[in-house]
Write a protein that binds this DNA or RNA. Structure first.
Length: 1151
RNA sequence: GGGGCAGUAGCUCAGCUGGUUAGAGCACACGCCUGAUAAGCGUGAGGUCGGGCGUUCAAGUCGCCCCUGCCCCA
């Protein structure tokens, strides 16, 4: 027996259980041991939040290729990983501990007070807070990944691998300590990564001031310089000009009849200025000026002179106020020119204590006002305005402005590897390709040294120890190396993973080899992107262990993450491997390194860059903006939301953000069901009401409604329909658009895809199982039965073509194209093969066996081809078809070998069938015009092909057309010529190349010629047109002949064919039509009686003479088509019902 | 402010290296079929291909400018 497919969720439950109980994933891995490897790297997610739809996208894309490659005969390890370090984790914990509540004070100090040991433990807990949710989702969407053997970035072996990498870099002099201007968050006491800074940009108003800087030697002349950060003016140590621009000393009128003398870029002088002297910027270099403030003397160099800098633009005054402590360009310039530094706002964001009393202790932004007032009082403020510009704030605390600040820190000299990184990038197979030269290439070309260190607590500690006495510095690649150097102070009794973290590792000291002093660790931890970038080797603990594993899985064949990882994981992976695995290191560890190809790419060969999952308004889904629905809604048909009261709602309304409502996108009559508990029955039916976004997963109800429910804080919402499930979810991401374009996610889109693919294929499967069961079809006896029947040959050929296409596309990582091919195939299978083959399945003879065998074989192959895409449905089909029991059958479809085409696709047959389908379509359209129902047979259809030579080849397919159109005959050619006109037009792609500018004239000449004459000429070997440049002879390839129906005929045409119908009816045809009508009525009654497919019936028919005549003549056919054992006829002109105007009545009973 | 991607039917999206009358699905309208049946199918209507300029015999496709959206960076 072939069992039918259950509903999606039941099917998925069943398959999950099967995989689980039979251990299929593990068997896949075991069975492929020793085969060539296809290497996949899992980019580690952070599990300190619940997974969302975007994670579903990455997980299903990541899942597809390993499944495919496994079936293709590769061994594909899939090691899961978790990213566990970093600021986001710390912030989460700080929030949890109330350190970020309003008025809680400095979080950094709170953490220190709480104790770093306690804090670290909290971080670990936080990181795995949602592990369960992640694992559930991962399983549910069918992402096969080894969660039991996951790598974890805080684990000791991982940390020690990262240490090894850092030690390598340190030994090669690529790790250095320097001052670096960073975006600094004073309240958090930390620098932020560029990503974090980017998140916090906001448009704000800031002062825009122009300040006078009198020249020391000519106090009457003031250099004018501009800034939007008055608070940096006390720390000014230089003014920068562009050496190439022209500057001028000029007199400008002031308000009260007097004038002043200024120095600025000539091109930017205000109107009415009188130029006194001109000079280039280069000539100004070295001029000294009086700074507006002298609160302290600069250190580390000269100060208060004009310097030249190429970064200075012709903007404002063309002179840039330079405070090296507070700007990246400024800092660079100061280093270059030997200018000193002043830092009068501290890392706490407050003006230092050595400042005058009026400024002392002010928060830096708050100092702007007093500083401007002071300048004004002293006549140094030339102009003061406000401008609107974008300025970064802390992404964690929206009111804290960030400041640029020169901080000591550790850097990796990545700039030394720019060329290598670019060469490496060039060798990567990017999808889409534009990432290589666009987004990623740009980023690499503009590379700056990697600011590695973080002055934080929960991260991989920088493995560098320095001597307190002599300042010697040493890095260590492992705990063992520390111990070998005589390190002491390791925390006993503490979790071994925690031993290598702050604060425990900070207590480890090493005797200095250079003097008798003691070395202790520097305080910093590192950027967690460095952690994840070490993943290719750190996942195995390489090189301290796992050497063989690493060697076998480097580089990766395939990785995939969302586009925001270009500067994240894609970069850290590529840069670290570029730096680390040079020829020497590769040789040392037995890694393949082809010097010619520079061993590139590493560490990944192919990268599929994913777009974002967006709401229906095209905005990236994010929790903070609340335009977000839980993956559970799609997977299980329900989701949990937090709920608040809103009196503006009606009692049966559910208030929800507009974007979420659009994404749920219910039909007009569909309402969500609301319950308090997850599994409750009943509940309330609510209408969704668009409203403002209420933030994280929040919805609102009328207070009374809420009270009636018992004022719960969370509720469950249930979809009013069968949940689409994981396969439908996956299919959307594969088939809706290319993976790198953004996907607008909505339930509606998922359900559409489901109808188009899953339901259609499910129907075909169901059709097969019904008739295979009736016929007692046994695959063991009848699979692979050859068939010469044309539909069988066609669908088998289409199947072969499909296998070919999907293989070719997936080999190029083109998932979308492959999915489309599958979709088109399923359409053909359902809407042509099954549709046109239906009655073949009803019999018992050879032809029925051919049909069943063909459909069986096709479905079995389809189950394999779709296995990487919709693993659940594929498995269910495969098992139900008895795949495991067939010769060479695997236990699971995912362990089966990828199907091979049984033969080269028959392209000619494919093209002919496509033409027949087009003719059927035209014929049906023509029937629509005739206005006679399809059940009524017509005499004949006349078909005129533009390419008449194809008619002969179509002969074998014509019966399909007569059946589909319900005509007795189809005629091609001569007779049909009465219905059509010919039309000729140039074949542009061909002729255009040949004729060039003559193209237009040629087109016109053809247009005005007699089409029939042109056609005749072409058939005779060539048609000549006269052009200005001389006669041109056109061959058949140069001209396209088309047909169109003549006016006044009931016929329809496309460019390639016209189909016309003989619409007139005679008694003979009417009689047959009546019989068909009878069959239809009897079938309806069968349906009403709910009879089984094989139940026999007895029919008694009373009716008028015409009805009886028809029933008598077509009796055998009627009995055959309705499974009637008897058909009793009785004349009754007064029968109540109406059959095409004839009286009739039916009595049907089970035989 | 810089860069990348995108803008095609009411909606969601295809459209290869420039070339015949720009396609599909959904929604809509009409109809059909029904031994896959609370499914299926057909037909129809619906588009200044964001706007402009240019290159070309020929532009949705190539180039430049502008507008809008998203993303990344500052």
């Amino acid at each position: 027996m072939f069992r039918e497919l259950p509903s999606p969720v039941a099917l998925e439950d069943e398959v999950l259980q099967f995989w689980d109980e039979a251990g299929i994933f593990k068997k896949c891995l075991d069975a492929s041991k020793g085969r060539p490897r296809f290497v996949f790297y899992e980019g580690p997610p952070t599990a300190n939040g619940t997974p969302h739809n975007g994670h579903v996208l990455t997980r299903v894309i990541k899942d597809l290729l390993p499944r495919y490659k496994t079936m293709r005969g590769f061994h594909v390890d899939r090691k899961a990983g978790w990213d566990t370090h970093g600021l986001p984790v710390e912030i989460e914990v700080e929030k949890e501990l109330g350190m970020r509540d309003a008025g809680a004070g400095n979080a950094r100090e709170a953490v220190l007070a709480y104790g770093l040991d306690n804090f670290a433990e909290k971080c670990i807990q936080s990181v795995f807070k949602y592990t369960h949710e992640w694992e559930t989702l991962t399983k549910r969407v069918g992402f096969w990944v080894d969660l039991d053997d996951a790598y974890v970035t805080y684990h000791r072996s991982y940390v020690e691998s990262v240490w090894w990498a850092l030690d390598q870099l340190h030994q090669r002099g690529l790790l250095y300590q320097g001052l670096k201007v960073v975006w600094w968050w004073p309240e958090g006491g930390t620098a932020l990564s560029s990503g974090e800074v980017g998140e916090g940009y906001r448009d704000v108003f800031d002062p825009s001031v122009t300040v006078r800087f009198p020249l020391l030697d000519r106090p009457d002349v003031s250099v004018l310089a501009w800034t939007t950060t008055p608070w940096t003016l006390p720390s000014n140590t230089a003014l920068a000009v562009n050496p190439k621009h022209t500057y001028a000393i000029a007199r400008i009128p002031t308000g009260d009849d007097s004038a002043e003398t200024i120095l600025m870029a000539e091109a930017l002088l205000p109107e009415g200025a009188e130029v006194l002297e001109r000079m280039t910027g280069a000539e100004l270099e070295g001029l000294r000026y009086s700074p507006p403030f002298r609160w302290a003397e600069p250190t580390g160099g000269e100060a208060h002179r004009i310097v030249c800098g190429a970064h200075v633009a012709l903007d404002q005054t063309g002179v840039v106020h330079t405070a090296p402590a507070y700007g990246e360009d400024d800092h660079k310039l100061a280093l270059e020119k030997g200018i000193g530094i002043l830092q009068l706002v501290g890392p706490d964001g407050r003006v230092v204590a050595t400042a005058p009393e009026w400024a002392r202790g002010l928060q830096f932004k708050a100092a702007d006002g007093p500083i401007m007032r002071d300048l004004k009082e002293r006549g140094l403020l030339f102009k003061q305005e406000q401008i609107k510009h974008s300025y970064p704030f802390s992404p964690r605390s929206k009111d804290d402005p960030l400041m640029q600040l020169a901080r000591p820190g550790w850097f990796i000299r990545t700039t030394a590897f720019k060329d290598e990184a670019l060469a490496n990038n060039a060798a990567v197979g990017w999808l889409p390709e534009h990432i290589r030269d666009g987004r990623f290439g740009d980023f690499l070309r503009n590379n700056v040294d990697w600011a590695l260190s973080r002055e934080r607590f929960w991260g991989t500690p920088l493995p560098i120890w320095t001597c307190g006495s002599c300042g010697a510095r040493q890095s260590f690649p492992s705990v063992a190396a520390l111990e070998a150097a005589g390190a002491t102070g390791f925390a006993e009794g503490v979790d071994r993973h925690l031993q290598v973290h702050k604060p425990w590792i900070d207590r480890v000291t090493v005797p200095c080899a250079a003097c008798s002093g003691t070395m202790s660790r520097v305080t910093e931890v590192i950027d967690c992107w460095f952690d994840s970038g070490c993943m290719p080797f750190a996942q195995f603990g390489f090189p301290h262990q796992g050497v063989e594993q690493f060697r076998e899985s480097f580089p990766a064949d395939f990785i995939s993450e969302a586009v925001d990882q270009t500067r994240g994981w894609f970069y850290s992976l590529l840069m670290i491997s570029t730096m680390l695995f040079d020829a020497e290191t590769c040789a040392a560890h037995g890694l393949p390194f082809d010097a010619e190809a520079r061993g590139l790419p590493r560490p990944y060969r192919n990268c599929v860059v994913l777009g974002h999952v967006c709401d229906m308004e095209g905005k990236k889904e994010s929790k903070s903006s609340g335009n977000y629905t839980s993956p559970d809604l799609v997977l299980r048909g329900r989701m949990k939301m937090s709920v608040v009261a809103d009196p503006a709602l009606k009692p049966d309304e559910l208030g929800m953000g507009k974007a979420s409502v659009r994404s749920i996108d219910l039909g007009a009559k569909e309402r969500l069901r609301l319950t308090v508990g997850e599994l409750e029955a009943g509940g309330l039916h609510v209408t969704l009401k668009e409203g403002p976004s209420r933030g994280k997963e929040r919805v609102a109800l009328h207070p009374d409604t809420l009270a009636a429910l018992g004022n719960p804080s969370t509720i469950w919402l249930h979809a009013p329909f069968e949940p689409p499930g994981a396969d439908a979810f996956r299919w959307l991401f594969y088939a809706a658009n290319a993976p790198w374009t953004n996907t607008r996610l909505s339930l509606r889109a998922i359900r559409e895809g489901q109808r188009e693919f899953h339901l259609r294929l499910g129907n075909v499967f169901s059709f097969f199982s019904i008739y295979a069961n009736i016929a007692g079809f046994d695959p063991a006896l009848h699979a692979d039965r050859p068939s010469t029947q044309v539909l069988d040959r066609w669908i088998r050929s289409e199947r072969d073509a499909l296998i070919h296409t999907v293989t070719e596309q997936l080999d190029q990582y083109r998932i979308y194209e492959a999915a489309r091919a599958i979709s088109a195939f399923v359409d053909g299978l359902s809407n042509w093969y099954v549709r046109r083959s239906r009655d073949r399945f009803w019999g018992e003879g050879e032809d029925t066996l051919d049909a069943l065998s063909t459909l069986f074989g096709v479905l079995l192959d389809v189950s394999k081809v779709i296995a990487p895409f919709v693993p659940f449905m594929a498995e269910a089909m495969y098992l139900r078809l008895g795949g495991p029991g067939l010769v060479g059958g695997a236990e699971s479809v995912h362990m089966a070998a990828w199907p091979r085409p049984s033969a080269a696709p028959d392209l000619e047959l494919g093209a002919d069938m496509a033409l027949i389908r087009e003719l059927a379509s035209l014929g049906l359209a023509a029937r629509g015009q005739v206005g006679v129902r399809v059940r009524q047979p017509l005499r004949a259809a006349e078909v005129m092909l533009a390419d008449a030579s194809r008619a002969e080849r179509l002969a074998a397919l014509v019966p399909l057309l007569t059946d589909e159109l319900n005509v007795r005959e189809v005629h091609f050619g001569a007779e049909a010529a009465r219905f059509v006109d010919f039309r000729v037009k140039p074949n542009y792609p061909n002729l255009g190349k040949r004729l060039g500018k003559e193209m237009k004239a040629c087109a016109a000449a053809l247009q005005s010629a007699d089409p029939a004459a042109v056609r005749a000429g072409l058939l005779a070997g060539g048609y000549t047109v006269a052009l200005d440049s001389g006669p041109v002879t056109l061959s058949e390839d140069d001209v396209l002949v088309e047909v169109q129906p003549k006016e006044g005929f009931r016929a329809l045409g496309s460019a390639s064919a016209v189909v016309a119908l003989h619409a007139e009816l005679d008694d003979d045809l009417r009689e047959e039509g009546l019989a068909r009508e009878l069959v239809n009525r009897i079938a309806s009654v069968r349906k009403e009686l709910d009879l089984g497919y094989t139940d026999r019936i007895r029919v008694e028919l009373r009716g008028g003479a015409a009805v009886l005549r028809s029933a008598e003549r077509f009796g055998p056919r009627i009995r055959h088509d309705t499974l009637a054992t008897t058909l009793d006829l009785q004349l009754d002109e007064g029968a109540p019902a109406d059959l095409d105007g004839q009286p009739f009545a039916l009595t049907v009973e089970r035989a």
